[in-house]
Amino acid sequence: MLVTLRRSRLRAVVYGVFYRLPHRVRRRIVRTFVPKYIVGAVTLVRDSEAAAPGRLLLLRQPPGRGWGLPAGLLQRAEPPVVGAARELAEESGVSLPPSSLSPAVPNAVVHAKGWVDMVFEASVPASTTELIVDGAEVLEAAWHPIDDLPRLTTATARLLAFYGIGPLAGTPGPWTSPET
């Protein structure tokens, strides 16, 4: 009981000192000791013309060992939906206004290695959507049947599992709820 009381008093003193510091000093202290995350934006683009289960837009990027989703890091102060639309256009040539992207459920996927993916969904007609890649950042873009996906990158397979898609869908992992 005495130890708990001492810890409580010590904590009150530390917080009292902390909140008397100038705001910029407090902010620097917090940034130093709080875990940092890199935030990315990802878009799951489905072919609106395909019958269920549908087709998914995937990209093959260097070194080309697996396929992934259109994704990238957010720029400073960039809203996630804007970043997702920007990355989609840069990597695949598919230009959509941010208002045509809807948040996936879950919208934020926190990865243990220090990054957060903000995931959005969109549907476009594959037959009239031209895919344009630069050959440097993206080697190839193509539509793939959801029930017959090519070899995926590990990160993509794990992310798709959150949405019940791909080789890890239905397997135990951080992407499944305890009830499954």
Rank of each mutant, 00 (worst) to 15 (best):
T4H: 11
R6K: 04
S8C: 04
L10N: 12
L10V: 12
Y15F: 14
G16M: 03
F18K: 01
Y19M: 00
P22N: 02
R24T: 01
V25Q: 00
R27H: 02
R31A: 11
G40R: 13
V42D: 10
V42H: 10
E49D: 13
E49L: 14
L59I: 13
P62A: 13
P63T: 09
W67A: 11
L69Y: 12
A71C: 15
L74Y: 06
R76Q: 14
G83Q: 05
A84F: 06
R86V: 09
L88P: 08
A89T: 01
E91R: 09
S99Y: 00
S99N: 02
S99F: 00
S102A: 12
P103R: 15
A104W: 04
V105Y: 05
V109P: 03
V110L: 10
A112N: 05
K113W: 13
D117K: 06
D117L: 03
M118K: 07
F120P: 10
A122K: 04
P125T: 11
A126Q: 04
A126S: 15
S127M: 03
A136W: 05
H144N: 09
H144E: 10
P145L: 06
D148M: 00
F162A: 01
G173A: 06
P174R: 13
T176K: 08
S177L: 15
E179C: 02
E179T: 14
T180V: 09
